[in-house]
Each structure stands twice: as C-alpha cells, then as structure tokens.
Write a protein that binds this DNA or RNA. Structure first.
Length: 516
DNA sequence: GCGACAG
DNA sequence: ATCTTGTCGC
C-alpha cells in the first residue's frame, strides 16, 4: 500500500509514455519511471476544489504542459472516498478516447495524490457557457455530439461516468471536448449554486435511492443539452427539496426559442423510466445499418399484371413493457378474403422511443414472415401493408420502410396519423382531406416538391384520412391502388384484422391494462 | 350506451 | 402518444 504506485497505462502518443519506452529496461526490473513532484515546474492554479487544487505544470524533461491535480488524502478519507479513488484512477487510466481527458500518470506522497492530466486551455465548458449565457443549438450540438461519443465509449468499456455536467467537460485549445472527472472529481462547489450543488443533474432513480445503471448518463446528457441550449438546468429551484420533487415528477418546461428537434432530443433522454431513455448503442446502430441499405421507392414488379396478388399485413400490440404479440394476416387480393393468420409472441429488448419507429417491431415482423415462408411458402405475401408511416417520416425511415428493407419484401406504410414534416402536420392533412371527395385521394408534397404520401379520404362520412406512403419496392401510386382495394373499413382490412387479433390475444392473457 | 384504448 | 374516431368489452 505504502509502496510507490507504478505509472498508469499511458496513451499511445503521450510524451511521458515515449520516455518510459525509450528507457532501456535494465535488469529485469519492469518498474517504469517513477514520477515525483520535482519533475514538474508548478505554475498558476487552474482551479480549486473540495479535495485540492489543480495547477498548470510543465514536465521539465520535455517542456510538456499538463494539468496537475492535487488531492489531499486527509480530505478524501474524511469523505470515505479513499478506496474509491484508487479504483477510479485504475479505470480512468485505461480509457483512451479523443473526447476523454487523458490521465498521463499519477504519483503520491505522504499526504497527497497527484494526477497528471491533459491540459485544456479553454477550461471548463461551464465557464464558456457562463460567458455566452447560452449556446445556439448548433454550437451546443457540437459539444453534445462529442460528449456522446465519449459516453458511448465509456459504455463500451463498462464505465458509468455518473457525474456529467458542464463543470466536468473540458475544452482544449482546439475547441475539442474532453470529458473529465470520473468520480474522484474536485468538486467545484464555488461555481454552481452551492445550495443545490450538483443536484441539478440527479436522475429519479438516484433521488429515490434505487438501483441505477449506465442509463443515468443518458439522463444527464439530456439535462446537459437543456443547460447548454438555455443556460439553465431544467430542474433548477430554490431549495433542495424542490429540485428533488421536480426530478421525481420529471417536471420541466422548455423556453419558446428552442426548436422542435432540440426539444425532441432532450425529451427522449430525460425519461423517468431508465429503459425508455434514448440509447446510443443498438437503436443507433440499427438506424445506421438500415440507412446504409437502399430503399427502393419504385415498383419492383408489375403489380397490375398479377391477378393473384396477395396482400398481407402484420400488426403489433403491447402493454407489458417488453412483451409483444405480433400478428400476420394474409388476405386474398383484391377480394380481401382472409387466407392465413399467424401470431408471434416475443419479448422485445429494445425500448420504445418515439421517432425511432420500427426497431422494436421489425424483430417480430421478421419472425412472422420467416414462419410464413417456412410453413406456408405458397402464401408468402408479395407485399406487406405495415401499420405506420413509411418513407414519409421525419427521419425518412418509418416502420414500413424498416420492415421492407430489413425483411427484403415490398412494403407499404398505412398510417392514421401523420408526423410533422416540413410544416405539414395533422392540421394541414385535415384541410387537404376536407377538400377531396370521399373515396378519392391526393398526393402531398413538401415545399421542395418532394412527394411525401398520398392522403385517401374514406368512403364513409369521416374526414379522418388514411395516409399511404412508400415502404419499399412499391411506388406510391401502386400503394394507393392496393390500399384502396383493401379498405373494406377505414383501415385496410389486413391491418385491421391483425390489430384486432393481436390485441385480443393480449387481452386474453390479461396483458392489457384495463383488465387489471 | 359508456369507457378504455390505440404506438 | 392526445383520432372531435372506430372498435371492443361490459
């Protein structure tokens, strides 16, 4: 314990590392250079904290400027953080990422720990934020993106930061983000309102003293985004109790100047239920994979020549957070006669996140389609109608397109509602619908002339439209023809049946909330 | 007929 | 994820 600590693992390009490696390994002694205070010129203090100060220092041998964090063992012990400190150093020294502050090395004397850290000329992001009041979304997004990269890396390394806030994000001379302070942080109680301290970034499970996991960093990322874009943390209040109450109730509101995209992003991260917080890993990965594949928006077959064309639909319904019952209904086209019904019960591991449509569903749909292909190959559908938007989606990738591309099958998106794209929302669609005759349809385009979808007004008296958009390998005009044929009711028959069947199954199993 | 629910 | 709607269960 009292023996001098060895050098921590160094980043590849660290000058300190070069020195160690250039030293001839004499004898069998593998002990690397032992750092000590006299190897540094100590300059001006960079910051003060609860456990000690940070100084600008120069590593004499190479004239290399670093930050030296001094932590008094006494203070640390008083807070019962002695052992934690060592674990944190071990952890931090193994992290190597462009957006994580590098720990070059560490050493100790009788009373103090010394951490040799990367020097960041522009200091804490907190300071820059104070100067600016608030950042415009473009600038905030740059910081958030880099921070996300760092957090993603942390998650891969099974490390939870736990203490994300603008005080712990350093900005170097190149304006690059460097995430700092992995737990042993020098708490900067001088800057933030001492009364609330770092309470602003606490998530509900911490406030309620429940178990927590890596998703607390997602919560904090949402809070951070809010603070960078507005200058104030979302749950700010006069008293500790008030903040905690607001956090428990997830009660916060946006200033009017924020864009919808920004609010949306924050909303997806600041979620009470940890499993509902937007995650960087799987969703994003799937999203990228699917986006890298080609979506075909034209007819891949001459549908009109095939009189035996079958329509199919699958739907998906859940109340239990992770349980889904999917249903696939094959109908004869164009009569709409039901030929086959398959269901699938599956535990979904991906959380539902609005705006990231299709990721949860696609697993279930895929299984159903495979099942059909294996057992009833003659009934395998040529085209699937999917409940929800298709290519017409703010991210240009709705459920129907996901299913179509993922399962490599022609697909059509059939939605009852619209998501706002380029100023076209529910209200605009309703106006458009009211201008067309029952049973007729019209194409809706954005201001650039890009076609989004076709709105069909049902044959009955309702002005509630059916919105058809391209999924994959089916053109919009063909999609509309097929859809109209399948519309015995307002929702195309296969979708309607699948919806009813999957919901009935859930109900029968007592998995819909009104049953208990 | 009324209430719940739909992702 | 708030359909001034459609459907089902009770």
């Amino acid at each position: 314990m009292a023996a001098p600590r060895r050098f921590a693992q160094l980043s590849v390009n660290s000058p300190l590392k070069k020195e160690i490696e250039s030293k001839p390994k004499k004898d069998d002694e593998k002990k690397p250079t032992q750092l000590s205070l006299d190897m540094f010129d100590v300059g001006k203090p960079l910051g003060q904290g609860k456990f000690g100060n940070v100084y600008l220092v120069k590593y004499k041998k190479y004239d290399y400027v670093c930050a030296l964090k001094v932590i008094f063992k006494r203070q640390l012990q008083k807070c019962g953080m002695g052992i934690q400190m060592k674990r944190e150093i071990e952890l931090q020294s193994h992290l190597n990422h462009p957006n994580i502050l590098k720990l070059f090395g560490f050493f100790e004397d009788k009373n103090r720990w010394f951490l040799v850290l990367e020097y960041c000329k522009k200091g804490e992001l907190y300071g820059l934020l104070q100067q600016a009041g608030r950042f415009d979304e473009r600038r905030a997004a740059r910081y958030i993106k880099a921070t996300t990269e760092a957090l993603k890396y942390c998650q891969e390394m099974n490390c939870i930061h736990r203490d994300l806030k603008p005080e712990n994000i350093m900005i170097d001379h190149n304006d690059q983000v460097k995430l700092a302070d992995f737990g042993w942080s020098v708490h900067t109680n001088t800057k933030r309102n001492t009364y609330c301290g770092t309470l602003d970034y606490l998530c509900p499970e911490i406030v309620l003293e429940k178990y927590y996991d890596g998703s607390i960093d997602q919560w904090c990322l949402g809070v951070l985004t809010f603070e960078l874009c507005t200058g104030e943390p979302p749950f700010q209040s006069n008293s500790r109790e008030e903040v905690m109450k607001k956090v428990r109730n997830v009660k916060y509101s946006f200033p009017s100047y924020l864009t919808n995209d920004c609010k949306d992003f924050i909303n997806k991260l600041i979620q009470y239920d940890p499993s509902k917080r937007m995650i960087m890993e799987k969703q994003w990965e799937n999203y990228q994979i699917l986006h890298s594949k080609d979506v075909i928006l034209e007819d891949s077959h001459d549908w009109t020549l095939n009189t035996l064309l079958r329509g199919l639909d699958i739907s998906f319904s859940t109340n239990h957070p992770n349980l889904a019952i999917g249903c696939l209904v094959v109908c004869e086209y164009p009569s709409g006669k039901e030929l086959l019904t398959l269901t699938c019960r599956k535990i979904i591991t991906i959380p539902y996140i609005s705006g990231f449509l299709g990721f949860r569903e696609v697993e279930v749909y895929h299984e159903l389609l495979n099942d059909c292909k294996e057992k009833y190959p003659e009934l395998y559908p040529q085209v699937v109608l999917v409940d929800g938007n298709g290519y017409y989606h703010p991210r240009r990738f709705g459920s129907a397109t996901h299913v179509g591309v993922y399962c490599d099958i022609p697909s059509i998106g059939v939605a009852k509602t619209v998501l706002c794209v380029d100023g076209i929302g529910k209200k605009e669609i309703n106006i458009i619908t009211s201008q067309i005759k029952p049973g007729e349809s019209t194409t809706v385009s954005t201001s650039n002339g890009e076609v989004l979808c076709e709105v069909i007004r049902s044959r009955g008296g309702s002005i509630n439209p059916i919105i058809v958009s391209c999924g994959n390998k089916v053109s919009l005009s063909t999609a509309v023809i097929i859809c109209k044929e399948c519309c015995l009711h307002k929702i195309p028959e296969p979708i309607r049946l699948a919806d009813l069947i999957s919901r009935k199954l859930l109900r029968d199993e007592g998995l819909l909330s009104h049953m208990n």
